[in-house]
């Protein structure tokens, strides 16, 4: 399970912040996609950018990897300026884009070898590195398969392997597990965790809260191009939702009035009540005893509760 990150003599970027964005602005004509946001990703951490569709996640990280020019503000990666030092920056990052950009004209191994050339990695070294990475990503049995023959999960793993070909200091992942089955997602997560242990820094977007909770040390939730909150997943849950959530399906009018009288924060979705509470077993007991025998459950609060509370429940399409 070792992706052979160089020969062990490799030194990672040692500055404090691997990404520093200040007043980052992106406009498309009159539309402001990213509205002067500032954030800093620390070296060695996994930093998440969360948000609903169209919030500005992809636009933000595209600026970080030098694909989209900024409309304003400043952006430093490895303490280098993306405007003037884009080539040095891009040679030290690995990017997994959202859309599949594997080369269908080439085989699995050729995809990595050709990609290595874009980084001016010598052929012999590239071959060694590529086979090591395919081994790490459990693709070593498909070296000569055309990309089109791979499953969705395998393609994602190949994209991830490809993004590691240059021994990046920073890995940028744009929705790394969207559209994958649970087995493939867990496999990707395990690989990312293994990489973390080796010291790689990660900047990622996702709209899977489970993924963010598991992988991210810190994260921001953005919407309409603005940062809503920033912090560690656990702290954000504690701060914005509390410890527990009681979900009540098909609440009666009596129950509604009762919840209102308890002063607990809650959301009324019509057919469903969601009550946010600290450790108050008695509230749950009282509800189940006096109001409803079924259709009521208490669970741990999750990042998804924070997300929905902050960004609302209406559809984003």
């Amino acid at each position: 399970m070792n992706p052979e990150r160089g020969s062990g003599t490799r030194t990672y970027f040692s500055g404090q912040h691997i990404v520093k964005a200040e007043n980052l602005l992106k406009k498309f004509d009159d539309f402001v996609a990213v509205n002067r946001i500032s954030f800093q990703a620390k070296t060695g951490e996994c930093f998440g950018i969360l948000g609903p569709n169209g919030a500005g996640k992809t636009t933000t990280i595209r600026m970080v990897y030098g694909f989209s020019p900024m409309s304003g503000g400043s952006l430093k990666v490895f303490d280098l300026d993306i405007v003037t030092d884009w080539r040095q920056i891009k040679s030290r990052i690995g990017v997994c884009q959202q859309e599949n950009s594997l080369d269908p004209d080439l085989t699995v191994l050729q995809n990595l070898e050709v990609f290595a050339r874009y980084f001016n990695i010598p052929q012999k070294e590239a071959r060694k590195k590529a086979t090591g990475l395919l081994d790490f990503m459990a693709l070593d049995h498909r070296l000569n398969a055309p990309v089109a023959e791979l499953s969705g999960g395998m393609m994602r793993r190949l994209v991830l392997a490809r993004s590691l070909i240059n021994n990046p200091d920073l890995l940028i992942l744009d929705e790394p597990t969207t559209g994958l089955d649970p087995q493939s997602r867990h496999q990707i997560w395990e690989r990312l965790e293994a990489l973390r242990e080796q010291g790689i820094s990660i900047l990622m977007t996702t709209h899977y809260m489970e993924e963010a909770s598991r992988l991210c040390d810190r994260l921001i939730i953005i919407d309409h191009g603005l940062i809503l909150v920033e912090g560690k997943p656990g702290e954000l849950i504690q701060q914005h939702v509390g410890k527990h959530v009681i979900e009540i399906a098909g609440p009666t009018q009596e129950l509604r009035s009762f919840i209102q009288s308890t002063q607990f924060p809650y959301e009324d979705l019509g057919h469903r009540l969601i009550v946010y509470c600290e450790e108050r077993e008695d509230l749950y007991q009282r509800i189940t005893r006096d109001f409803c025998k079924e259709g009521c459950l208490m669970r741990m609060a999750t990042l998804e509760d924070v997300f929905l509370k902050l960004t609302g429940r209406e559809l984003r399409e």
């Binding site: 990897y65 694909f67 080539r87 884009q97 950009s101 594997l102 080369d103 004209d105």
Partner: peptide, 14 residues
């Protein structure tokens, strides 16, 4: 269709 240029633009290529 193949997004080959997009992939290239995430490398040191301009």
């Amino acid at each position: 269709y193949q997004k080959t240029f997009d992939a290239m633009l995430a490398t040191p290529l301009s």
